[in-house]
Design a binder for these strands. Structure first.
Lengths: 153, 153
DNA sequence: CCCGTACTGATACGGGGTTGCAATAAGACC
DNA sequence: GGTCTTATTGCAACCCCGTATCAGTACGGG
């Protein structure tokens, strides 16, 4: 689990597409690797390695946790997978999408809101103006109070 | 290690001040607790629990790690301490300051820049406009490319 | 100076992830 | 299809960063 991506995101459309990318990267499409990819395609949102190992709660065959970790790492290295942290617990993995998403986590109700890149342009511009940093919002969440909790507080 | 502060920050100016606050919160000023506070005052920036337990690398007497964790937790509950995460590793603890600081972490060189609240007003405003969230930047870092690495990339 | 109880230290345990290594199986080449 | 190379697996042991339990200690109000 690297903190920074080594390769640019390499979005894949389906399993077949992923298989091609895997081979092009010099990898083999083994059963555990295929299972990890299938789980990522089947998942609704970002999921933990443990959820993948458990077959998303029984919906898919299970996979050895250690193989899940190794495959997620490697798939992340080649750009197919990304992981985010939405709190103190386990990292959450997902297929690398074409567009960056920010995750807004409410510190009171723990609710998570996904915001797409387009709406962050001005945020990034303000950060750049204030610090020179070119911010990415796809690895650590933006923490704070959601509208409802802010109103109640 | 709570993810969200339970109490508003309660900045303390020096050890004596901290001792008063500890007693007012119904706590006792034991040797390990004093040691943790001394380490936090002596530290240059945010430090790990382990660094505190080690006496900041020998500069101060050592303290049992388990007591360091318990004291940091309790001090955080009463508002004297805050912790941040600047990456995948251990949390980093510091005395709660009066002003919020954001931590900008470069994903390439891992350099950390501290930015104070005043310069974040417009950033926060843009996030509020885009999502309704009232963002805090003092718990998770803003991840991205520092000016130097952005130029080199 | 006493005494209740907040706190300590030793130990065990937990989640989350990584590493070492022998055994297995993809898939390139024939 | 058979062979062979080596990427990958699965098991087990391990590591980091903390937490929980609990008997014993010591802080500090009276």
């Amino acid at each position: 689990m690297t903190v920074a991506p080594r390769h640019p995101p390499l979005p894949v459309g389906d399993l077949e597409d992923a298989a091609r990318v895997v081979r092009e990267a010099g990898g083999r499409l083994t059963a555990p690797r295929r299972a990890v990819l299938e789980a990522l395609f089947a998942a609704e949102g970002p999921v933990t390695a443990e959820q993948i190992a458990d077959g998303l709660g029984g919906r898919l065959p299970t996979t050895e946790a250690v193989s899940v970790y190794r495959n997620l790492d490697w798939l992340e290295e080649i750009g197919v997978v990304r992981h985010v942290h939405l709190g103190h617990g386990a990292g959450l993995y997902q297929l690398a999408g074409a567009a960056e998403h920010a995750y807004l986590v409410c510190e009171r109700c723990a609710g998570v809101t996904r915001l797409d890149a387009a709406r962050l342009r001005r945020v990034r511009a303000e950060i750049e103006k204030a610090s020179g940093f070119h911010a990415h919002f796809d690895h650590f969440p933006i923490h704070g109070l959601c509208p409802a909790c802010a109103a109640g507080a």
